[in-house]
């Protein structure tokens, strides 16, 4: 029995998985295993209640429009309070792609208004012309427990433009790519342990250092206290993703 266990709750993994979100889970699972840290993955689907105290990291990926709307309503109906309680006690709640949109106040899709769970003070609007922000992206982030800025590399593909309310802090500053709205230079959101980003799908495989930071934050330990791994291939993959973004 491992001394510590990272307990992850994947929200709607069968519906909100459009961009290979599994890669992120796999990254956490293996890196825990190599360090002798336990890993526990629980799925919470439509209608399933969530125990705020039973998980260290809640993960919400992206989905097709119809699936995302199904999940939005279900989140509000059955999981909002639990996720607020979880974030309140320091669990990580992470929304990627469609996930960041649902963390906010609401998402305007033309005349329709999809509710969010209000964990971050932001809202999202679908572009009137339907245009999407697509491409490789790199952002610069400064995260608690790390000395100095780091680069997150990934890929974005979103029709929504996300606007942060005054005082809300982005996850990072866009170095290359579009970011939240294509104009502000902001990417994602960071409020305590609530994290949102458009860097979709296998974000963690492209940024092993960030996988470790997430793991440490969810476990409530100093990122520097995690044992080092042989990350030569991870570093090469990170460089490859950065190179694709032009950074």
């Amino acid at each position: 029995m491992a001394e510590r266990t990272l307990r992850v709750c994947a929200l709607y993994p069968d519906l909100m998985n459009i961009y290979a979100d599994r890669g992120n889970m796999l990254m956490l699972e293996r890196r825990c295993a190599w360090r002798g840290i336990g890993f526990e993955l629980t799925a919470a689907g439509l209608g399933d209640p969530v125990d705020p105290d039973a998980h260290d990291l809640f993960y919400l990926g992206g989905g097709q429009d119809r699936d995302q709307q199904l999940c939005a309503q279900d989140l509000v109906d059955t999981k909002r309070d639990a996720l607020h309680a979880a974030a309140g006690r320091g669990a990580v709640v992470m929304g990627i792609c469609g996930g960041i949109q649902l963390l906010g106040d609401h998402y305007e899709l033309g005349t329709e208004r999809v509710p969010g769970i209000g964990l971050a003070d932001l809202h999202t609007v679908r572009a009137i012309d339907g245009s999407r922000l697509i491409g490789n992206v790199a952002i610069e982030v400064e995260l608690p427990g790390l000395d100095g800025p780091r680069v997150l590399a990934g890929f974005e593909n979103h029709g929504g433009r996300t606007y942060l309310a005054a005082g809300e802090v982005p996850l990072g500053r866009v170095l290359k790519g579009h970011g939240n709205d294509g104009r502000s230079g902001f990417e994602g959101v960071l409020r305590g342990t609530v994290i949102g980003t458009y860097l979709h799908g296998p974000l963690l495989p492209k940024n092993a250092w960030f996988a470790d930071w997430l793991m440490a934050t969810a476990l409530g330990v100093d990122p520097g206290s995690l044992s080092a791994l042989d990350d030569r291939l991870e570093d090469a993959a990170h460089q490859s993703a950065r190179h694709a973004a032009g950074v």
């Binding site: 495989p205 090469a236 993959a237």
Partner: peptide
Amino acid sequence: GTRAPEMALRLKY
């Protein structure tokens, strides 16, 4: 290929 290291990482994991 252009994203060779990422392919290798996928196989490692």
